[in-house]
């Protein structure tokens, strides 16, 4: 009796010990929008991502206020008028990585992640293509995809319409490290 409980506990514990959780270290999220008057682009290095190998769950949080623009005024408009970053603080992705990837072997894998992309408080189910690079115990995820402004209820007033493209190109680059076990 005693032994069986002990072994059961051990099995359970070990299974959760074995599955690696990866946490982002360096990261860069960039968006670009080409427009007749001026291109609009910003870079964010304040995002956080977690990937759980065991259940293939991927969670990414991108603080909207972390986007830095060349022009300060543009940054203020982005936060105040378009993204409403006080109300909708973060862009989010919560989903799972598709396919089977062996994280113990070095290599480059083309894959997709399927889940809910939340921007401006509006959820969209998306499958996003990306590249996964496993190299010497590190993990890197890269992805390039598009976001349609109207999908996320981001309103651009008619007067400044020519200023901003309706579709934004987003580039993500996340480096992960195995997360040390807590407790």
């Amino acid at each position: 009796m005693k032994n069986s409980i002990l072994s059961l506990t051990l099995i359970l514990l070990s299974s959760s010990l074995f599955a690696q959780v990866w946490k982002s270290s360096e990261n860069k999220v960039h968006f670009f929008s080409e427009a007749p008057l001026e291109n609009i682009e910003a870079t964010n290095t304040t995002s956080i991502a977690l990937y759980n190998e065991e259940n293939k769950q991927l969670a990414i949080v991108i603080p909207i206020k972390g986007f830095k623009f060349e022009k300060e005024l543009m940054e203020e408009h982005f936060n105040e008028n378009y993204m409403e970053s006080e109300k909708f603080k973060n862009g989010k992705f919560k989903g799972t990585l598709d396919g089977d990837i062996d994280f113990s072997k070095d290599g480059t894998y083309e894959t997709t992640a399927t889940g809910i992309l939340t921007i401006h408080g509006v959820e969209q189910k998306r499958t996003i293509k990306g590249t996964l690079i496993v190299k010497k115990g590190t993990l890197q995820m890269q992805s390039k995809f598009q976001i349609k402004l109207e999908d996320h209820d981001i309103e651009i007033p008619k007067i400044v319409f020519s200023n901003i493209a309706e579709v934004i190109d987003v580039t993500c680059d996340f480096s992960f490290k195995p997360q040390p076990k807590k407790k």
């Binding site: 995002s47 991502a49 977690l50 990414i60 949080v61 603080p63 603080k89 973060n90 989010k92 919560k94």
Partner: peptide, 12 residues
């Protein structure tokens, strides 16, 4: 997981 990450982002 998500709310943990969001809390961390808030703290940062």
């Amino acid at each position: 997981l998500m709310s943990m990450l969001e809390d961390e982002a808030d703290a940062n």
